[in-house]
Simulated assay, not measured.
Amino acid sequence: MMLTEEEITQARATLDELKVEHRDLNLIIEHLAATPLPDQDQLLVHRLKKRKLMLKDKIYQLERSLP
């Protein structure tokens, strides 16, 4: 299926947003990992890592769909 120019532009904008969010999550996770955390904060780190992985998958899928 061919994408229109508008769809390509929108997909690239979405891709940029996802990459920024992925990078931000990475910085937050690194910061939290550098400090000792109570157990409930470990759960937060786990959720953030899961979200980061989901974003990575979406980024990969979008990149593959673009010409």
Rank of each mutant, 00 (worst) to 15 (best):
I59S: 00
L18R: 13
L15F: 09
K19H: 05
R51N: 08
R12Y: 06
Q40Y: 14
A11N: 10
R12F: 06
P38K: 04
I28P: 03
L27K: 15
L48S: 06
A13H: 10
M54D: 04
Y60K: 14
V45D: 00
E6L: 13
K19C: 06
L15P: 05
K19W: 05
D41V: 03
M2S: 10
Q10K: 08
A34H: 06
I59P: 01
E21Y: 00
I59L: 02
L62V: 10
I8F: 05
E5R: 14
D16H: 13
A11D: 06
E21K: 12
Q40H: 15
L18D: 02
L53E: 10
D57K: 14
R23N: 06
I59Q: 01
K19Y: 05
Q42L: 11
E17T: 06
P36F: 02
I28D: 09
T4V: 08
I8W: 07
L44Y: 01
A13N: 08
L3S: 08
D24Y: 05
L44E: 02
L25N: 00
K50Q: 12
S65Y: 08
Q61D: 13
V45A: 00
A13E: 09
K56Q: 04
M54Y: 02
R47E: 12
M54W: 03
D16T: 12
Y60W: 02
Q10P: 00
Q40P: 07
D57P: 01
A34V: 06
L37N: 08
Q61I: 07
L3E: 09
R51K: 15
L44S: 02
M54R: 04
T4Q: 12
T35N: 02
L43C: 01
D41K: 04
H31I: 04
A33E: 14
D39V: 14
D16W: 05
K56L: 09
I28Q: 14
K19Q: 15
Q42M: 11
K19F: 04
H46K: 15
L32K: 14
K19D: 02
T4M: 09
L25M: 01
A33W: 03
E30S: 10
D57W: 03
E7P: 09
K56I: 01
V20F: 08
L25Y: 00
E30A: 13
A33L: 10
K19V: 07
K56C: 01
L66H: 09
L15N: 05
R51M: 11
A33P: 01
L37M: 12
K52V: 05
I29E: 04
R47F: 08
D39F: 13
L62P: 09
H31K: 15
L15A: 06
K19R: 15
L37V: 07
E7H: 11
D24F: 05
L3Q: 12
K49S: 11
E6R: 13
L53G: 11
K50S: 12
K58E: 14
E30I: 04
A34S: 15
K58M: 13
V45N: 00
E5T: 11
M2D: 09
L37W: 00
A34Q: 09
A13T: 03
H31L: 12
L44M: 04
T14I: 11
K52Q: 15
E21A: 06
R12S: 03
R47L: 14
R51S: 08
K52F: 01
E6T: 11
D57G: 05
T14P: 03
I59H: 01
K50G: 03
V45C: 00
K49N: 13
L18M: 13
